[in-house]
Design a protein around this nucleic acid. Structure first.
Ligand code: MN
Ligand code: MN
Ligand code: ZN
Ligand code: ZN
Lengths: 142, 142
DNA sequence: TCATTTATGCAACAAAGTTGCATAAATGTA
DNA sequence: TACATTTATGCAACTTTGTTGCATAAATGA
């Protein structure tokens, strides 16, 4: 990882009023270096048990709260997380893109150039957030 | 529950080549009586520990395989399940409707009269399934 | 009623997630 | 740089969730 990126990581944390700690920097590095969404257990594997499981839970929750990452729903009991690229902030996410889960490689990715379509809901329903998760075969695996 | 429904439950199981057992009938009853999607822990609560946890896991998996229920993705480590209403069959689900999760009452429901919109994916991606989960406030809670 | 097939229950695990609390590290100020 | 204060971390102990193997019970067709 370049120094430039390391600098931007500390900037990122400071912008969210978070203190710069080894765990937070390392987890953000893992997100930046990854080409897909990460689940909780990935961090322990990727970082080689260099930090406690509890700390990972708490760090991910903090990042969610601050709008640094967003979560991607699944049906396999392992929530995925990915960096927010747009201007998300505390309690105000703007990640209105489609997520894709490849059935071949298992990778889950943000399709950053897409937008979720307008959803017509029945009378009486108010939408705050729309998650679109497409599964299929990704361009690497086809 | 009416006898008519009980009869249709056994029909349902027979149509999927499943033997009629107390657990399967009871779990289907719970689905029919419920006005929203159910998660694993609901069955133990609703049925009052009348069957083993392992049996619930295995029964839900069987129903998924047979196209009797479908799963709804979440970001809260508890997958929801709901009855398939359309003509789903083994390994061939057709539940192309939108799911709604109410942030007030916590209920997750199938919006059966909706259809998931066309999704435009980047070049090289092939879609097999599309999940749309909308969160917000339902018509009961508004 | 009986033989065969299949589902269930139990035990024993493994994995995932939570909470309280003492300690360590980060930060702002002197 | 040193210190006081705030905050994050690590650990233990625990709860919840999910898995597997195996003996027994129940369902089914003959
Ligand atoms: Mn995303
Ligand atoms: Mn549904
Ligand atoms: Zn792939
Ligand atoms: Zn509601």
């Amino acid at each position: 990882m370049s120094n430039k990126t390391k600098a931007s990581i500390t900037d990122m944390l400071r912008a969210s009023n978070l203190s710069i700690t080894d765990t937070r920097v390392k987890i953000l590095e893992l997100f930046i270096d990854s080409n897909g969404a990460l689940e909780h257990s990935s961090f322990e594997k990727l970082a080689g048990h260099s930090f406690d499981r509890v700390t990972v839970y708490r760090t991910l929750q903090t990042f969610l709260d601050k709008g640094i990452i967003h979560s991607i729903p699944t049906t396999d009991t392992s929530i995925r997380y990915a960096l927010c690229k747009s201007d998300c902030s505390e309690h105000d996410h703007h990640d209105h893109h489609i997520h894709f889960k490849c059935e071949e490689c298992g990778n889950t990715i943000c399709l950053d150039d897409t937008t979720v379509p307008e959803i017509q809901l029945p009378k009486g329903y108010a939408a705050h957030n729309i998650d679109v998760v497409v599964s299929g075969v990704c361009k690497e695996c086809k």
